[in-house]
Design a protein around this nucleic acid. Structure first.
Ligand SMILES: [Mn+2]
Ligand SMILES: [Mn+2]
Ligand SMILES: [Zn+2]
Ligand SMILES: [Zn+2]
Lengths: 141, 141
DNA sequence: GTTCAGATGATTAAGATTCTCATTTCTATT
DNA sequence: AATAGAAATGAGAATCTTAATCATCTGAAC
């Protein structure tokens, strides 16, 4: 049960927190904006305020349950923390988001930072391009 | 003279555009927010509106004269386009920004994108860490 | 110098996120 | 199960950054 994750994170178990966690766990889209989560809550009949969604997501982030990403536009998206770090590729045409992890890039980042006298703690990497998937509805000519 | 850059970019030569370009060229800080540029204009006695600063920067970006970056916080920063692409390292403590270019990272990005069926067009990479510079006023213990 | 498209500045508006505070809900304790 | 206290919530206001409006001004061309 997900109430455990909340308790382990030191967060009181409340209905909004459980519902938001449930959406993050079960939604077919892995990367969700606060607005998107809010809409899903409304659709499922929950009376949870948008302010609460933002508040809870920020708490989840601080607790290490989710991570916050800026992929495109001006809205942050959130995704459940599932152990492994990864970076993202976003399709400029259809908005599809793919995940990847590249050992070489990760290693070089550390080396480059070190060469510049930095102890690297984090990084943000997003690739933008056109997906060549034949199913992409906005595929360029 | 910088009026040439404006003409080449197809932009009418106006006082606000010249002044903003001048600040981007001469400021000791390479990465400036719209607000920071606005303040420098005020300090030098220019009566240029903040809306104009945002408008002009957006035009400069479209013309390829500057590029817009999101390094930290919620404010975009702008820097003069000086030919070569590069990425950034930001110090979590003092905010210092260093630039780097790594051929290996760039190459792997293309390869990774290709493997995932994307034609890569752009990317955003920012490393965050603590600078180990003895001059850093916020150096961690 | 006149003309007029285009640029500017003051203001308003928009979008995303956070804050405030009165009310409600958990959790622990009787 | 009732109670109490701390914490969380919801509605709306506030904030912050950036973009849009629109009347006025400016610069390039004649
Ligand atoms: Mn992801
Ligand atoms: Mn730079
Ligand atoms: Zn990575
Ligand atoms: Zn790069």
């Amino acid at each position: 049960m997900e109430t455990n994750n909340l308790k382990k994170a030191g967060l009181k178990v409340t209905l909004p927190r459980m519902k938001i966690l449930e959406i993050l766990e079960t939604s077919e889209t892995r990367h969700l904006s606060a607005e998107a989560i809010y809409r899903e809550l409304l659709d499922s009949g929950e009376e949870i305020g948008l302010a609460t969604v933002y508040r809870v997501l920020t708490q989840f982030e601080a607790a290490g349950l989710v991570c916050r990403l800026h992929l495109e536009g001006n809205q942050a998206v959130f995704e459940l923390e599932r152990g492994g770090h990864h970076d993202h590729i976003v399709c400029n045409q259809c908005g599809r988001v793919e995940e990847f992890f590249d050992e070489t890039i990760e290693r070089r980042q550390s080396e480059v930072a070190q060469q510049h006298g930095f102890s690297i703690k984090d990084h943000a990497l997003v690739l933008y391009g056109d997906c060549l998937d034949s199913a992409c509805p906005y595929r360029p000519a």
